[in-house]
Design a binder for these strands. Structure first.
Length: 578
DNA sequence: GCCGTTTTCGGCCCGACTGTTTTCAGTCG
């Protein structure tokens, strides 16, 4: 068995290569050279194993997209923490490229021109120049350009960052529903990273087939949620909606729906791979279809296009150019877990600790979702902020759970608890209390900044306790708000297999923890996984689909997810006798 | 800069919209 460890250095190396790419682009280097750096960065970012391993083994050049030149930069960076090449370039172009490029409408050419002519280095410089009318006199620029720059700056300051998947999904679904109601609209779907279930979303892409393109675009740009229209052409439009999210719409004829949906679902890297296959067959693939010369040979459905290309259908969550195309060629894609496979939710809170609903309300809501059993996992121990239960209250709660279990037929209610792992690795409750519970979750809630070694030991110690069944939200991160614990996942996965501990995929929209890359590594290592919503109200139970999304992005089948087990098998696996 | 059952040289994904132009470059996805 081989193990995988996700290292922080991968992200550092990727960041360096991205920055080099930006600077090369400013310099006006060949687009292909720039692209080569970006591609290498992207591959290393989602590598799934530490770049140091390949480096120490002298096998950097075996990484896709890394050749002699880039390998040398990586080597220097890993040895010395610096890159002469990068620093030299940065000296000649000292502007804040990242921030400037993030302004809508600002690309490398404008950033370079504005630096050369006006010494603009920061967004602040840019704003001042635009306000005083210094930009309009430059070649290729005009008054409108200045206005757009100011609008772009204002917008970048207001919005900042990406939208959580769990927030973007309902918005996209509502827009899709509204478009679907129109008489002249046939197919409509959202695409993009949203359809691939990435944990955060840059913007929302929507695709429509219609007999009347103009009417669709008109309807779209005049929706009440639209705050301003960025672009509006005959087949394509972009708008901002309340809250600042950008929504792109594309209208296409029915016969192109499949190829367009593929194109807009991405990922970009997946599309490029597909197009290369088409080129090798002397065809051409675009959003308008698969072409042999001028003749369209596929495009109506995604299935048709994949099939014509000699590939089995690839689920959107797998389209990241991480080897799925090769598997599709061999017809060996995994049968991904689906929401329907889920028989239970293994993490939820009630009024007993920090939730808003009762045991009974949670159970009824879970039953409505079609679950066979659930696990009530209120906080227990000393976590006072979360109103954690002590031994006495756990006893009282057990009586209520048993009562509800009898009262509500068709769903089994288990008593679990979420126990805090203290900084020294000790658990927040005594063993004689833990042993009375059906399922025990252990998780980190504090001291998330300890060094990796200590943090890892904490989790390993918890797993060594025979009563701990699941490690919940392993890193404790909150997306865009808190980084979470540094962990040596290689050792954690080893210990999980040794002790039979399950690792949770937490489906809370701002947790998504394990994330897709770590869940991928866990599955490859052979770990058992669970998906829990960590719900604090009945509404939140529906977040299960986000967790399933992570599992699917990690190529999990139902075999790897313990809460797809029917109750009988689940009870047997965890030694529950009731 | 990378890469190769078409190539170790000559390719590298493809198209829409905007704004400033008067035929197109820049940007975006």
């Amino acid at each position: 068995m081989f193990f995988i460890l996700i290292s922080m250095r991968n992200a550092e190396v990727a960041a360096l290569l991205y920055e080099i790419a930006d600077l090369l682009e400013l310099k006006g280097e060949m687009v292909f050279k720039v692209r080569a750096y970006r591609r290498a960065a992207q591959v290393i970012e989602s590598l799934g194993r530490p770049i140091e391993d390949a480096w120490q083994e002298g096998r950097l050049e075996e990484i896709q997209g890394v050749g002699r030149g880039i390998a040398e930069h990586i080597d220097e960076f890993l040895r010395s923490g610096k890159s002469e090449y990068y620093e030299k370039m940065k000296k000649t172009m000292p502007m804040d490229v990242e921030s400037l490029m993030r302004i809508e409408g600002m690309g490398p050419k404008k950033v370079k021109l504005l630096f050369d002519k006006l010494r603009i280095k920061t967004v602040k410089d840019l704003e001042a120049a635009a306000r005083s009318g210094k930009i309009r006199v430059l070649p290729g620029m005009g008054e409108k350009t200045e206005q757009n720059i100011l609008k772009g700056i204002e917008f970048a300051q207001k919005s900042g960052g990406r939208l959580l998947l769990g927030r973007a999904l309902p918005i996209a679904e509502e827009i899709v529903e509204n478009l679907r109601k129109l008489k002249y609209v046939n197919h409509v779907n959202y695409a993009g990273s949203l359809r691939r279930m990435k944990e955060t979303i840059g913007d929302i892409d929507i695709l429509v087939t219609s007999s009347d393109e103009k009417k669709v675009i008109d309807f779209f740009t005049k929706m009440p949620v639209v705050t301003d229209v960025i672009a509006q052409g005959p087949t394509k439009s972009s708008v901002h909606i309340q809250g600042g999210t950008q929504v792109d719409l594309r209208v296409l004829p029915e016969s192109r729906y499949g190829s367009a949906l593929m194109y807009f679902t991405g990922s970009k890297e997946h599309n490029i791979e597909l197009r290369k296959i088409a080129i090798a067959k002397k065809w051409k693939l675009s959003e308008y279809g698969l072409f042999s010369g001028n003749r369209i040979i596929a495009g109506r459905t995604e299935e048709e296009v994949y099939k014509k290309m000699g590939l089995s259908y690839i689920e959107p969550e797998m389209r990241e150019a991480r080897g799925e195309i090769e598997l599709a060629q061999k017809n060996r894609l995994p049968d991904l877990v689906t929401l329907k496979d889920i028989k239970s939710d293994l993490q939820m809170h009630t009024k007993w600790s920090d939730g808003v609903n009762t045991v009974e309300e949670m159970a009824l809501a879970a039953k409505k979702l079609g679950y066979e059993y659930i696990c009530i996992t209120d906080h227990a121990g000393n976590l006072l902020v979360a109103n954690a239960l002590d031994a006495k209250r756990l006893d009282q709660q057990r009586k209520e759970i048993e009562k509800s279990d009898k009262k509500i037929p068709g769903i089994k209610i288990l008593q679990g608890a979420e126990i805090d792992i203290r900084a020294d690795g000790k658990l927040d409750l005594k063993n004689d209390v833990l042993k009375e519970l059906d399922i025990v979750l252990a998780s980190l809630h504090s001291a998330l900044k300890l060094p990796e070694e200590k943090q890892t030991s904490r989790i390993l110690a918890a797993m060594d306790n025979e009563h701990i069944d699941i490690i919940a939200h392993p890193t404790g991160r909150l997306i865009d708000r808190r980084e979470g614990a540094q962990l040596d996942f290689r050792r954690i996965f080893e210990k999980a297999i040794e002790t039979g501990t399950v690792i949770e995929i937490n489906a809370q929209p701002d947790r998504m923890d394990l994330n897709d890359v770590n869940a991928f590594a866990a599955r490859e290592a052979g770990c058992a996984l669970s998906i829990g919503t960590d719900s604090h109200s009945t509404d939140q139970l529906r977040a299960m689909r986000l967790g399933v999304g992570i599992a699917r992005r990690a190529w999990c089948t139902k075999k790897e997810i313990v809460n797809t087990l029917p109750y009988k098998d689940f009870a047997k696996k965890f030694g529950i006798k009731k």
